[in-house]
């Protein structure tokens, strides 16, 4: 029996409404805990000890031992896990082995840059998907619709780095030089003040997102347009525009909202490759750097942050779909 089934408390209407949400959040937290354990164990099994990594290959054995005690590496694995998790809850994400600075410093900058990129991408993606989907639905089975279906299939299948590289070839190198191929943003500045550096990475995220969402919009609009309710509106002689915007669209948007939230989650996953491609200074490219440097505390922190954000949007999608 699923946990979500314990909702039929007829006597407590408020409880029965809150229970599914609460159990979902509880399940979410448990999943996130499992994920954090997975990250911790994976990072711990990295070849070589953190102490060895810090001191290098020529360190004396007792030096390594001393540092191990200092870092708490001699404690049992699960005490280490509790300490790590406790530290994170208090805002202590550990110290980067590469820079010697607290991980949280670069994490804040990376998060701001990544969040800006995702937000800009989503802000353009959602309205565009709505328009494209409605237009395709209007020309259902016509030439425009067919072209749309083929294009959207292609861009949904192709990996982000391919879309991104083609965009770079067209707008930054081979054809014209309108935009920078590399997104340089100084650490202290907000990406918003460098719009030209944002355009290509954002577009790389927007294209597949629009292609995916607009398909759903198209199907939803087609479904709504064939209902009796819209047929009645047509027979009443209402103008097509009025039918579309006042009657069809509001009903077509409902099934798309959870999908949009899911796309937000996918955006976070895809952001790793896109940021790497454009050397955009966000959490994704920082993670790739940390992996290259074998910077354990940083890897743990970035993976946990990206996984949490991903999970958060999945949870929203789930909650919206449930309603």
């Amino acid at each position: 029996m699923a946990v979500g089934d314990v909702t039929e408390d007829r006597g407590y209407p408020l409880m029965s409404r809150l229970m599914p949400v609460l159990s979902k959040v509880l399940q979410g937290l448990l999943t996130l805990l499992a994920v954090s354990l997975l990250i911790f164990l994976a990072a711990r099994s990295l070849r070589g000890d953190v102490a060895n990594m810090i001191l290098g290959p020529h360190a004396l054995p007792d030096q390594v031992e001393q540092l191990r005690v200092q870092l708490g590496l001699n404690q049992p694995l699960w005490t280490q896990y509790i300490n790590w998790l406790g530290g994170i809850l208090h805002g202590d994400w550990g110290t980067s082995l590469a820079s010697g600075r607290p991980v949280s410093e670069s994490l804040v900058i990376g998060l701001r840059n990544s969040a800006t990129l995702s937000a800009v991408a989503l802000a353009v993606m959602l309205p565009t998907a709505l328009v494209v989907g409605v237009v395709a639905a209007q020309y259902r089975d016509g030439l425009v619709d067919r072209i749309f279906l083929i294009t959207s299939m292609i861009f949904n299948a192709v990996p982000e780095f391919v879309t991104g590289t083609i965009l770079v070839a067209i707008f930054a190198t081979t054809v014209v030089h309108w935009l920078p191929a590399v997104s340089f943003i100084p650490p202290g500045d907000s990406p918003i003040s460098y719009p030209s550096a944002l355009i290509l990475p954002a577009t790389t995220i927007i294209i597949p997102g629009v292609m995916y969402l607009s398909r759903l919009v198209r199907v939803a609009v087609i479904d709504v347009m064939t209902t009796e309710y819209i047929q009645t509106a047509v027979l009443k002689g209402l103008s097509p525009a009025r039918i579309l915007f006042l009657h069809a669209l509001p009903n077509a948007i409902a099934p798309i909202i959870p999908a949009a939230s899911l796309v937000a989650a996918f955006t976070i996953g895809g952001v790793v490759v896109v940021e790497y491609l454009f050397a955009y200074p966000g959490v994704g490219s920082a993670l790739v750097d940390a992996v290259t440097n074998r910077d354990l505390p940083a890897i743990q922190a970035y993976v946990l942050v990206i996984a949490s954000a991903y999970f958060f949007f999945n949870l929203i999608a789930d909650a919206l779909a449930r309603k």
């Binding site: 994920v35 994976a42 993670l287 890897i299």
Partner: peptide, 21 residues
């Protein structure tokens, strides 16, 4: 539920994490 835990982890992260190890 096990599948959900796996789904909760963006694929590229899992791959990057394990390949780095």
């Amino acid at each position: 539920r096990c599948m959900d835990v796996l789904l909760a982890f963006p694929g590229i992260l899992l791959t990057l994490l394990c390949v780095s190890i």
